[in-house]
């Protein structure tokens, strides 16, 4: 259950940074992006996917959040 940081890079692309793995990867898709929920399954450009407990709204970036491996 790593702490990861979501931020927008200079091109405006959202990335997820996992400090322990030195992995900064573009976020391909976030499952829930409605006005009342934000989170769920997060798919990265390298194919891996993580689960983020849905938040009430899209947070102000950058933000550090806890995610779990999908399927855990």
């Amino acid at each position: 259950m790593p702490s990861v940081m979501f931020r927008e890079n200079e091109q405006g692309q959202m990335t997820m940074y996992i400090p322990k793995k030195d992995l900064e990867e573009n976020v391909e898709n976030i499952e829930l992006q409605s006005e009342t929920e934000w989170g769920g399954e997060v798919t990265l450009a390298d194919g891996s996917s993580w689960y983020l407990k849905p938040l009430e709204a899209k947070p102000k970036l950058p933000i550090t959040l806890r995610v779990t491996r999908s399927g855990d």
Binding site: R7, Y17, P19, P62
Partner: peptide, 9 residues
């Protein structure tokens, strides 16, 4: 980079 990321957040 660690502290820069922290300050950004």
């Amino acid at each position: 980079n660690y502290i820069s990321r922290h300050m950004e957040e």
